[in-house]
Amino acid sequence: MTAVEFLMLTKGPLFQAALAVFALGVLVRLVEILALGRAHNYAAPRGSAALGGLRTMYKRFEPDPGTFKAAPFDVVVGMVWHIGFIVALLLFIPHVELIKSTFGIAWPALPNPVVDAITAITILGLLAALVHRLAHPVKRFLSTPEDYLIWGVTFLVMITGYLAYHRLINPYPLALGIHILAAEIFLVVLPFTKLTHMFTAFVARYYNGATFGRKGVQS
């Protein structure tokens, strides 16, 4: 197989297949969660559950000062690479073009050097996160093979993207194909692993915020 054939395979049928697995899988996960439902709550509310839920969906982006003091590394590194990942995903020009062609919507992108720098930082952040996971007693204790798997597929997407952008793998169609393949692995693995937290975390935050909000506490 030539590099261009590989690129066309990853851009064409594999991309379609990965996207199908992703869309199907994520919706199965989300719908199966929501379909479970909740028991009716008979207690008189003190505050609005819905408002509390919506606020918490956003609020958990801001770590509370106590947590920051207790685990500054987790908070900083975690935020840095999550933001970096999302910026690289959504604000890199080739990705914007891809999203435009797939969903028909587009938004302004960032200049390439900015995305490049953010990507480099994100890769370092991911490496730091892995070292921390291996070294920190609680993280090491909790970690399962799945945790390392999802780290791996995330890292793979970032590092192959970086290599492709800098044309460090030759020929370029091979570099791009590897990056696209990594993204497809990410998409396929996502619905079957805790990578679903990309979506379910907002559901979780809503329920958390709604439970507390009902009691008049902003969680």
């Binding site: 379609q16 996207l19 199908a20 199907l24 919706l27 990705h95 028909g104």
Partner: peptide
């Protein structure tokens, strides 16, 4: 260059509906 050939949108809708 990053845009895949074919119509991903329809496929996404179909897969989403199945999901």
């Amino acid at each position: 260059l990053s845009v895949p050939p074919g119509n991903s949108g329809d496929m996404l809708l179909a897969a989403g509906a199945a999901g």
